[in-house]
Design a protein around this nucleic acid. Sequence first.
RNA 1: GCGGGGGUAGCAAAGCCUGGCCAACUGCGCUGGACUUAAGAUCCAGUCCCUUAGUGGGUUCAAGGGUUCAAAUCCCUUCCCCCGCACCA
Length: 953
Amino acid sequence: MLDFNKIAAKWQREWERERIFQADAGNRKKPKYYVAIVYPYMSGLLHLGHLFTYTFSEIVMRYKRMKGFNVLAKYGYHCTGTPIIAAAQRVREGEKTQIETLKKMGIDEREIPKFADPEYWCDYFPKETLKDSKAMGFAIDERYAFRTTHLNPSYDAFITWQFNRLHEKGLVKKGKHPVVWCPKDNVPVGDHDRADGEGETPKDFIWAKFRLKDSDKYIMAGTTRPDALLGQTHLWVNPDVTYSVVEVNSEKWVVSREAVEKIGQQHSKARVIGEVKASELIGKWAKGPLVDYELYIAPAGFIESGVGSGIVYSALEDPIDLMECQRLQANPGMVKKYNLDPKVVQSLKPISIISVEGMGDNLGQEMLDKYRIKSPAEKEKLEEAKGELNRSVYRKGIMKKNCGKYAGLSVPEAQAVIKKDLLKSGDAVMFHELTGKVVCRCLTPCVVKIVEDQWFIEYNDPAWKEKAHECLGSMQIYPEVVRKQFDYVLDWLDHWACTREYGLGTKLPWDQNWVIESLSDSTIQMAYGTISKYLENPKDYGFSTEKLNDEFWDYVFHGKGEASHVSKSTGIPIKMVDTMRADFEYWYPFDFRNSAKDLIQNHLSFCIFNHVALFPKKYWPKAFIINGRIMVNNEKMSKSKGNFFTMRELYTKHGPDIVRLAAANAGEGIDDANYDMEFLETAKKKLTEVHEFISEHYGKGRENELAIDKWLESQINQNISNATECMEKMMFKSALYHSFLEMQRNLKWYMKRTRGRPNKKALKLYSESLTIMLTPFAPHFAEECWSAMGKKGLVSHEKWPGANQKAIEISLDKSEELIRSIISDIREIIRLANIEKPSKAILLVSPEWKHELFSKASRLMDENPDKVLKGIMQDTNFKAHGEEIQKILPKMVSSRKLPQAEISHAQELKVLKEAEDFIKDEFGLAIEIMDAEKSSEQKAKQAMPGKPAIVIK
RNA sequence: GCGGGGGUAGCAAAGCCUGGCCAACUGCGCUGGACUUAAGAUCCAGUCCCUUAGUGGGUUCAAGGGUUCAAAUCCCUUCCCCCGCACCA
């Protein structure tokens, strides 16, 4: 077995010595290709997930180099945001799992205290990441590597520029927004920080105000269906509850006790100024918005004081309200108990305000009937009925004539308009309620909080969205199916809270209390990556980055202003300023960026938005390549399952080439890929075999040329052609299949067919093509093979092979198929007929007229299947065989199964003759090949083109 | 709910856009054989059912219906599965 690590080290030294991956814009003769590798987050070492994603970038980088491009790889380390800080905090607290995680990465126990400092992470992991990348043989130019965060003043200046420009364009605004909030920790609680309630979000409600008669108090009732206010009939309160009276903006609101805190979170401070028992409200009247009548206040058992305001208004088209109402009406005892007016109670009836196609005027009753609900106790059924009704109302409902100015609107339209009207008139206030219970990791139940003074990037700006769509339309998206997803996301993105109160990152330039959030500071960093070589190593170029300012970036990215002026204000020599400008112009835009699909709905879409806002069209992104997530042996990768691997573990154990091959072979497209640990071993064996084969056979072999040699040549060229096509389509697994696995299979057959006597020229073509095509996948190994062939220079410098179309001959494939099927048939016959000691196989090639017959028949078939028979029978050439044709042809025509007549009679004979020895060896039989017409065997008639009759004796 | 992607032989996974060469690429697994002291590896053969001195027949590509001379592939309906829905990298 080859020592893949040894090979890797050897060739990495060579590459290093020749600096073959240094990317310089000076090389302008070549077209450029800019790969914006997605940068890893520096909260740990690279792992298998990174490896998979990076393999795509890596393959394309090397491939494009071999296609003659000047390739730049953007390479960096992501350090902004909260995860590093949080992890450092955990180290400080001595949390076991965090410390274990660090230990597993090979960090010495004594070193671990250093990780209590977030900045140490930002130093340590970039270094280790670079080490790993080089050990993997990634074709990167480390001079360009950069870190994000304020620890890197150049990057800091770059982000400052970005936000100043966005701000100037009016795309960053201050506002407020609802978040799920932990009242104990005082932080927003994202999905992953929850002990319970994943997926729950704040939902819009409105609380409508119902003025209590002869009072200055408002009864507040929440609703998600403001349209139903038009059909309001009365109010429900929970008879056993004592409500609070709170003062909000000098109004007095009646709400449940539980609601008081919510008001405080979402509105100005709520001051409790009194209490009122439900019994004091029941039987009174109140006046709500939109209608001109007053509502009676009634008791209901289903009202939960913890939901909404603890009071609801009733619209009797709702099955739950209706059921409750019917119970009350049928229960004089209750009416008496609560001292209600029986006349009023009996007068309550549904007001029909919405027409729904296929339904009548009493929607609530219809649903009760449909679900056969008899009592309010049947809660589940009631919920279902309500749900179904709401759905059909939402989809098909139209506001009826009695809805005044809202008449004729569809229900969603009416909801939107009414909501707006009510909020404007002050008859209702906006409220957010969680869609379900959320519990923070600290076990505190969460609430909705309105965050004030938050800065947003206004991705909801319609003009901006339109431009983003335009950009997407001009981009290549691989695989194409993801485009729809992007389209949706671009529309869906709302304003994005882009600042945090704490975390690593650049300070918001005009409001230094805020730190720019981590997804927002990495949307156009590919532009920085074109000139990071200079900015990260200014001393090497004789300048300093201390005084970088917005003017500098304006000049470099937009050519705005004067180089001399920029030079004066930044202290950077004019020549350097212009060099950077030129480099940017040369490299930008980026041509390739790949990532796992999780980044579609944020990072990649942000990237589009920010580019269209900050750069002219010619610098907009060119292509996104989306890959699935990686699984290990068909299981999700996770630390708890023990199938979590750092990249370092993998390449140390198996060598980088093997690890890369397995990654390339894991999958392509958007489906989750599978990293097959067994393939690692298979790959080692296969590569070792290849190396042995090449070392042994290259430059040797016979000189004379047989058909089988042409066949191999044809196959090689087909493989080149297929592999190239796959490479261009970014389908690297398929590319690997054609360039490597298929090639190997072909070789095996070839060696067998030539009985170990290959042709020298064919082998040369094979070895060279294979080695070159393997270079993007297993570059060290390819170098090793290249040198084993005695080649001077590096295979990394070779051109990707072009397929010689002339060498591709389908008829050669057909010939091989013929041989294969004959062998398999002979074997089958021997087996079935149980022939103990066969001595001879006679192969009877179908007569020439049959070849002619079927090639003509298939021509006729393409024209008109109905006329095949007639056409043939009219042809005098076939007259002599009329009877036989009548027997076989009609059936074949009707089933559309004609024998293939691609190989002529003469060719068929020739092919068989040439393979005679091969077949003989295969079975140890004497072989006789003859024209079926000249044979007296019964079987001879069965011979068809491409299917000789076989007689075993 | 909204949006997206899927359902193919024991498993995994191609094919579907551009219908026919599809009983359906390929890998794994399984069965038998060769090699070997043995195991592993490797190699050869087989692996939907029936039939058979091969090239024959039947039933398959979630389910049902349709278009067509012809459907895994096109159209319609139904069922089921996966992913995303944010302030987080």
